[in-house]
Nucleic acid binder design. Sequence first.
DNA 1: CGAGAATAATGAAAATTTATTTCATAATTA
DNA 2: TAATTATGAAATAAATTTTCATTATTCTCG
Lengths: 282, 282
Amino acid sequence: MNILEKIANELDTFSKSERKVAEVILSSPGTVIHASIAALAKQANISEPTVNRFCRRLDTKGYPDFKLHLAQSLANGTPYVNRHVDENDTAEEYTDKIFESTMASLELARKNLDANVINRAVDVLTQANKISFFGLGASAVVAHDALNKFFRFNVPVVYFDDILMQRMSAINSRQGDVVVVISHTGRTKSLVEVATLAKENDAIVIGITTDSTPLAKECNIVLSVDVAEDTDLYMPMSSRIAQLALIDVLATGFTLRRGTKFRDNLKKVKDSLRSSRFERKD
Amino acid sequence: MNILEKIANELDTFSKSERKVAEVILSSPGTVIHASIAALAKQANISEPTVNRFCRRLDTKGYPDFKLHLAQSLANGTPYVNRHVDENDTAEEYTDKIFESTMASLELARKNLDANVINRAVDVLTQANKISFFGLGASAVVAHDALNKFFRFNVPVVYFDDILMQRMSAINSRQGDVVVVISHTGRTKSLVEVATLAKENDAIVIGITTDSTPLAKECNIVLSVDVAEDTDLYMPMSSRIAQLALIDVLATGFTLRRGTKFRDNLKKVKDSLRSSRFERKD
DNA sequence: CGAGAATAATGAAAATTTATTTCATAATTA
DNA sequence: TAATTATGAAATAAATTTTCATTATTCTCG
């Protein structure tokens, strides 16, 4: 809880001298965070030890620690929350809301991700003979992005956003292949079938989806991206961004696992693009 | 400015020892606010005066004052900084860093976005006869995503990630058409040419790119997405996520501008997907 | 109700911890 | 090689905390 609120709440439980300190603090907390214990004691007309005891009473380690808490209370702006866009929002307002919701979702997704599972997924990916990324609709975008990333690693990698191609590809998969199936809902029938087919053909199936969904049940490894999707406007928004961040994580894990030499290779890929660009003047 | 961001920003201007402190602070700011100057110095393997000088360099009065700022930064909603992934990071560490960097980039992108420009872009989009999204590589993913979004609006919309198709499409554009060109660098020659072609053929060109680049100069409207891209691993990461968030903003602006009736239409599109999904049990 | 014992609150001064300054030395740059 | 800058050991200064004696408050019991 905010320490200022706490002080206000417990005002009655304080002793006479303590209340004096409390009042000084409440009346100008901004000044107090820059004051020494001596200065505060003087302003409240009480002794330094009393201030110290006051701080301890509020479950802080002492005066400096108390000031830290106070500083945090003062700074406590609104953290990112999923704020819904409103009919009459101005451009500025809905822009802010969307960015904040997105950040809130990322925060949430991160919390729900299990580092061990990521580790296993990276393990599997680094050892794959071939990697396939499948998604439909908004998740196709994520698969597309994954292709872009993993393509640079000089590993056989494919991406399909066409149900038939996905099925054929899944049926042709074999031991050593890894199939990454992406779906926010985890309920898209054809994708669940593709996952099943791939697994039946000995591929390792990694699902980027919501936990305990039909798709999740078909996967060998489930990277669960749980975000509260704002479906107000009937469009997937945050979920795909969290999925993309996860792709970044996997790609990063991949490069780290592959070691330094491998990263030189990435630089080569990057340099190869140079001639297609206008030179930077600086 | 947030003192954590400040540290991250000025990392290059620090001396060797100062950088050591900076790294310790960035890696666990939460611990530092409870540490004495001696403890921090020891952890960073440098002397106490160096820590003190480090604090002063960041425009604080000294170590205690620095801790106050740090505490405020931590409480300040954005503990997110662009932290670089390190060779020996565990899965947990690099996952956290990537999510945090992404959030930091979103924060930055939001700050740099101009609501007026967004408003104009939405204006133009709502009045378009046809909308085209062009991008290459990582930006193709963003264009792809834009297609997914705008397609739902029942507006003629196309997306190409093929240079030739982009050129042909640009040449065939006419008054009333809107072409959205996406490129983080803003220096990809063929895309700049496409923008020029589209403009010459009376289309309105919206650029989602970095300010004052060759591409930006060719556009009628520039939505500048300035994010500090971490090119350590030679892969575009944050930039495309910020671009996607911007697409969300544009799509949202679009739906808001079109009014209530229009949103019923969106619901229809969404409902049409239902039969392709497994039912939810709850 | 009130004397006095018990308890709690308080502050002066000492002790301790923490931060800063000074200054000599080491590292870096010109 | 000189000049500059960065760094840390030690000394100093500042601040916080502890100790302990004193004062205020509360409680008990005649």
